[in-house]
Write a protein that binds this DNA or RNA. Structure first.
Lengths: 184, 184
DNA sequence: AATAATCGTATATTATATTGTACAAAATAA
DNA sequence: TTATTTTGTACAATATAATATACGATTATT
């Protein structure tokens, strides 16, 4: 048996054990037969890509997690020590939590948008993506010609090579977590 | 036929064409039969993980590249539609906002930790980093032998190849944004 | 302690992945 | 133009993936 079905088996067993799931339970979650799951875990069978997909979906993980091979400081950021980036619009502030770095190729901000404030972002270079999570309040997000009402707890991912505008039409401040990912 | 073998077929054909390779040549490079390669490209067959591995190796690409899905221009995620991942600890829930993808190499969760709850995460593979932002409440984060008090608005970045424990000792729920970044 | 439920594994059966080969159409060489 | 080579597809044979079911061992319940 090739090495990769063995690796898949180890990864799967490890995940299953960490979640304290029986093969029966996993069969329920994934729609794959218990006997097949056992074979896969033991590296006795070479699963098809659809089967791995079913397993990954049932476990709410990605297929990549199942095929991943092994390859091991702590940074604590205090909000009170962050110096916000402000713009001409008084009601928009961006607190840089994690700066861009060559390894991750993304940066993370906490952003606040006061009631009535509207903030326009210029298009980034092609390939840049933004992930916006509204952790408090609500936001209207205009991306190109479309407008999206983003409620508390909701999240949006979009290509940031389009102009986009953050608008807070509510009467409470909006708090966002923003991840900006740059292409390699 | 499931959608993923169809996706694999499209990706493979696209790569092969971009390199101006015939099926015969690809069969030579990969050690997979020409007939099978044709079936895979047409989405007529559901390849095993070993077969994908052989194809990827022959082409000097990763398996992930073969299974990658295109991302839409804008993805809006509604919190109310998310199915949380729960574990044996009753008070810990992880809502998957953005799943892992071959391009970004990270996944994003909203996590809730109820008062008094303690959640242990097994060490990830080496090279995996976690970014944890506390957007509501407070958290004690134990990483290896160290403990960190993380207040609202604070954030932590750490290598997730160490065991780590989320503990909510306060009397309010803690809400976190968690980014898990996997090495390329 | 006895009984029931659960667990992972073994086995036989069915479904399908994978190969080798043949073929017709298209492309290339003479 | 004709002959040859290359290409992707069709098909049958072989190998193996995936399932349903049964089983013995272990755990949980009565």
């Amino acid at each position: 048996m090739d090495h990769i079905p063995i690796k898949v088996g180890k990864n799967l067993k490890s995940i299953r054990k960490s979640r304290d799931l029986s093969l029966d339970k996993l069969a329920e979650l994934t729609g794959v037969s218990k006997a097949m799951l056992a074979q896969v875990e033991r590296g006795d069978s070479n699963p098809t890509i659809s089967l791995l997909w079913k397993i990954a979906n049932g476990l709410r993980i990605s297929v990549t997690t199942l095929i991943a091979e092994e390859t091991p400081q702590v940074t604590l950021v205090r909000f009170g020590e962050l110096e916000p980036i402000t713009e001409e619009e008084e009601g928009y502030k961006a607190y840089p939590l994690f700066p861009f770095d060559a390894k991750t190729h993304f940066e993370v901000y906490t952003v606040t948008v006061e009631p009535g404030c509207s903030h326009q972002s210029e298009p980034h270079q092609e390939g840049v993506e933004e992930f916006v999570i509204v952790t408090q309040g609500a936001l209207d997000l205009q991306i190109g010609d479309e407008a999206y009402a983003v409620e508390q707890g909701d999240a949006v991912r979009f290509n940031a090579d389009q102009g986009h505008i953050y608008v807070n039409r509510s009467d409470r401040p909006a708090w966002l977590q923003v991840i900006i990912r740059y292409p390699f």
